[in-house]
Design a protein around this nucleic acid. Sequence first.
DNA 1: TGAATATATTTCAAGCTTGAAGCATTTTCA
DNA 2: TGAAAATGCTTCAAGCTTGAAATATATTCA
Lengths: 164, 164
Amino acid sequence: MSIREKHDGQVGVDRVNVRLWLRLLSCSTVIEKRVRRRLSERGATLPRFDVMATLDRNPDGLTMSALSRLLLVSNGNVTAVVQALSKERLVQMEPSPTDGRVSIVRLTEQGQASFDDLAQGHHRWIDAMFKGMDKKESEQLFALLGVLKASIADEMVEENELES
Amino acid sequence: MSIREKHDGQVGVDRVNVRLWLRLLSCSTVIEKRVRRRLSERGATLPRFDVMATLDRNPDGLTMSALSRLLLVSNGNVTAVVQALSKERLVQMEPSPTDGRVSIVRLTEQGQASFDDLAQGHHRWIDAMFKGMDKKESEQLFALLGVLKASIADEMVEENELES
DNA sequence: TGAATATATTTCAAGCTTGAAGCATTTTCA
DNA sequence: TGAAAATGCTTCAAGCTTGAAATATATTCA
């Protein structure tokens, strides 16, 4: 059996999806590392920036769980990051008036200013990294990632159905 | 100034690239988390699987630095993961015959068998997550990620040129 | 009502990752 | 040649992340 066939069990069936996934992962990792490094040069970190960006998109505030869900990180992690930001007065937590379990997190004025500053740089870095794609390519890529996103969501549903 | 204009300085200029990047990151994060969870259900971890997969693609062995570069992780990290795999006899390190600094890492027979087993599952999971894309869409996505990859590489060159 | 269940959040230990410092070996070039 | 620079690798401390357990509050429904 040739190396080409080894994991396929069939000649000519290449692992196209795995190669696609590896390329996707590689793009995303490289961009992420570069953003991370540049943020750290400015004394910020990516997790903190992510929290602030999500709050910026939700001016009415978010609960801890909502943050956790939107950011795809664990609850414990959100707690740690928000507490750190809170200590520096960049975000504020207030108890929900209607539910004693819930905290609502918002950017403070200072946090908004700090974020606006970082976001400008972030926007510039991203633009520079995507400079080699023309408008049509960007739009196509955006649409195709939408298809992928739906496909992934679909698979999760199927997986959950198997459980029950 | 409206919220829409806040970070743009110009009406109608939306942050398309940032949105594209966030969608890319989100796809990649969700897939990665799902793979990570399933590997851990089988007693494996993603970093260890990544090292074994890279060695599988390079049957002649790789140096620690080459692994670090291919995997986009730090040297120290590679050392830790390879040492752990080595303890379980899944990989072996041998000194380079021509360069006393270099170690060459390879899969052992046992490591190859263990990887083949995991890779089969991995292949299946990825296929399931990409099931919603037809052949043409996959190919387009692969090609567009190639354009993005080149664009990112380009930006790095420019960044380095600024240094000197 | 009130017991059982569900939900929101925090705490904590274990493992991961990084980047800087350090050591060893090799290469460069005056 | 041999001093300086570069390269390969490891160690280590600091910070990040997770997932499970703990705590507190809300909701459900017998």
